[in-house]
Design a protein around this nucleic acid. Structure first.
Lengths: 190, 190, 190, 190
DNA sequence: CATGAATGAGATTTCATTCAT
DNA sequence: AATGAATGAAATCTCATTCAT
């Protein structure tokens, strides 16, 4: 029998993410994806049960890829401030290098589709960042609030700025990056 | 000739926003909207040029409504800290009371559709908040950074928390609201 | 608004029955029906919920039409033997004149589809024939068996012969018709 | 080179017949058959030229199997009445034991597909029953009519009753079986 | 103004079949 | 022999939109 062609699957994933970025979720159809991925539309149904399954798996893949990149090279033994700095810079780097991936995830997150998909393991992907904030809390560096609150005030604004840069409304240079990290820190520090 | 029936337009707007919230942008079709609004699909084309026009106008209407609510009762002569507090509370109130409206806007914002629509006048809707931050900057209360940066670090996290509450993942009480406002303030204060 | 065009519905019914006869149930698709009926495929979905609904309604229409023709002109006051004769001749006439209709019904009857469709009122359509057999039974003309049994032995063979004629394997003339009626009578008479 | 695997062919035949009974001709696809038969769809094309060939061969196999069962143990030297009785009982037994087989054949018979398939040898399969009726005719037991006519009036109603039993609308016990046989006999006897 | 009727285009998905191993 | 991979064609059905009343 013929070999499973991983290139095809990869091409499907890529085409999906690119299309969602270019024309949006609503306009992204299986046939457009197939055309962009240079496969037959029927081929997509070999690897995925249906459109929803495909989008869900694309989302999961994107999320896993992101968590790998975000924490790669992070030293959990380093001082929290250093870890925080490292993480923030990694985050910005990721969004700028993998903007399509990130924007795709954002669109999924903000649509009611998401809630139909299983999300159990998802949280585990971000454990390192949770640990960092817990450590910071126990060292009395950060406010004694829920970690999710700390994340919303420190990580999310940086993500927002990176998104703005993708849209051409902002530009990260070393100075502005430092400013942002400082503001994040100010928001959550005791 | 019959008069323009504002009830029908209103029903169309409402149905659109509700549907986008319930089933998402991609699944929201003209006929579903018509059914929910209790009008014929053809009627929609009396009031709007086409689907995109309809969505765009719905978006604008939502945005205008939001700016009205956000700044209603705001006293630009009051101290910045008070204005800030007032605005934050108004914002939370708005999202909790008009969740559908807000989530609809979020979905639009995160999709490439938006970029096709005119956005000139949009910014003017939020001038009061810009003015407040400029005042704060000139009074050396806030960091001397771009106002958009200040907004991202102070307003957006609060919006995020309100969204979380809509999804049942967070709950604003007086204490947590004060905490949030304080964190917002900490992020941007000098 | 545009008038409901009954011609279109009729054309859809006719095309369905013809196609099922020509190429069979399995090969009869909505688009082929649409083409034959000279309407858009989408038009079919104005009048019917889906394919199954369409087939079911076509079946019901065919059945109603048949019962009207079968009993039209039948005199329930006449002697049973005369009624029987009249009915048998009507039946043969119907099948020969409306072969497509009848063969369509046969195909539906022999497929598992049928069991999914509601059939309550169906039986009422054939009440006159039930009454005839009951009368015959009470007059001790017929065997004291279940009417369905009497029908199977007297009516069905005639139907079978008419079907054979449609396929060119048999030919009803006055003599063979009389023979058939006699055999039917012999099977069920006391 | 591996040998022809009769188990697989058998599995394909069985799956086909079962599926046609469960979901009907129109819904029976190669891939569904393959799944039910636990083979790859491609395997089917090793044993059959295409779908039509497969269905045709399944039909022929079913017909052969039936004729074997129907006449097995029949004594052509016995009196016609005994042969008739034996045959009728065998028929009922067959339908009740091999309902799927029989209903499959009925569906094929009533569809235009059949006419595309070769039917020469088919008739030879039922020669014993033809011979029995010819004998009965020559012994002046049966009406001097075409044998097909005699069959339609005597055999077909019994088949119909057996079908009714499969659908749960009738029940053969010894008494009703005798009644049916008697009615068959009455229809065709002189 | 309002709407049921109508439709071409396109959506998702399955089909029968072939290919390479 | 057997099968997973692959696909063009076609299935059903929905879409956005226009038309006639």
């Amino acid at each position: 029998m013929r070999q499973r062609d991983d290139n095809k699957i990869e091409a499907i994933y890529d085409a999906t993410i690119q299309l969602v970025n270019e024309i949006g979720f609503a306009e992204t159809s299986i046939s457009k994806i197939a055309k962009k991925a240079n496969v037959s539309a029927a081929t997509i149904y070999i690897y995925f049960e249906n459109k929803e399954d495909m989008l869900g798996k694309t989302y999961l893949k994107a999320k896993k890829m992101m968590s790998e990149k975000l924490f790669h090279g992070m030293d959990e033994a380093a001082p929290v401030r250093e870890q925080f700095d490292f993480f923030a810079r990694n985050f910005v780097k990721f969004i700028l290098n993998h903007g399509d991936n990130f924007m795709f995830m954002e669109q999924v997150t903000n649509s009611p589709l998401l809630q139909n998909w299983c999300l159990e393991e998802t949280s585990s992907l971000y454990e390192p960042v949770f640990r960092m904030f817990e450590t910071g809390k126990s060292q009395k560096l950060f406010k004694q609030e829920d970690v999710n609150l700390l994340i919303i005030y420190s990580v999310m604004p940086i993500a927002q700025l990176a998104k703005a840069q993708i849209k051409g409304e902002f530009l990260f240079d070393e100075r502005s990056l430092q400013t942002a990290i400082q503001m994040s820190w100010d928001a959550i520090k005791i």
